[in-house]
Amino acid sequence: MAANVTTPGAVEPKMWLGGIEPMKASYGKLMMWFFLISDTFTFSALLVAYGTARFSFPAFTGKHEDFTFSNMYWPVPERVYEAVPFLHGISLPLVFVGIMTFILIASSVTMVLAVEAGHRMDRANVEKYMLWTILGGFTFLGCQAWEWSHFIHGTDAGSVMKVIENGTWIEKTIFGANLTENQYGPPAFADFFFFITGFHGTHVFSGVILNILIFFRAATGFYDKRGSYEMVEKVGLYWHFVDLVWVFVFTFFYLV
């Protein structure tokens, strides 16, 4: 980046003329940090709004094994998320979301290993670890697509719920969830599920796109020519942030 380059024979860098990088971080890195702060606010707003909705609904107070889906109280997460691909009908609470968490942490590790390789101008290792990171990102997205599909289609039996339709209370069986109907609990629960995991998934998706771009530029020798692999670091910051958000989503959506 232009900000890092000191042309030989150029005027000595001066503190107030853009010669010295503020906080010893390049322009791009600093701007990535400040973008991530703004993104932190967006995700915080979503998660805190979820907390508000949850606090304004009654909680399920009975015994855990007596829990049934109802729109009269907020659902217990381990009863909502208990399905795993290829294991239909078996109750495995939080197992699949645990696998997704592991995938994202592992892809964060391969990303930081790519950044480290970039510091040594080790192109082969940058390529290798970027590919692992891209693979991890796609795997996570695939898992999320499956989870959404299961959430939308619902369980075999569905849930019988009392809902208002055309101004009168009726009893009907609801299968799965959309933005207005939800077999697992109050419709607001499904709305937050779609918005929060959806917004996070969008971030993962754009992260994968950026990672592919970085891999392509590394593989074609662009960063070798430039003499710096700092772009790997900047996109790495974004990728770790996506992992960070998931840590919070995991706790406040799936565990608490």
Binding site: T40, F41, S44, A45, V48, A49, G51, T52, A53, R54, F55, S56, F57, P58
Partner: peptide
């Protein structure tokens, strides 16, 4: 964010 959490969780409680 800490302020947001405090304000909105109290709000949620008040709605409840």
């Amino acid at each position: 964010v800490a302020w947001l959490i405090l304000a909105l969780l109290l709000e949620g409680n008040a709605i409840f």
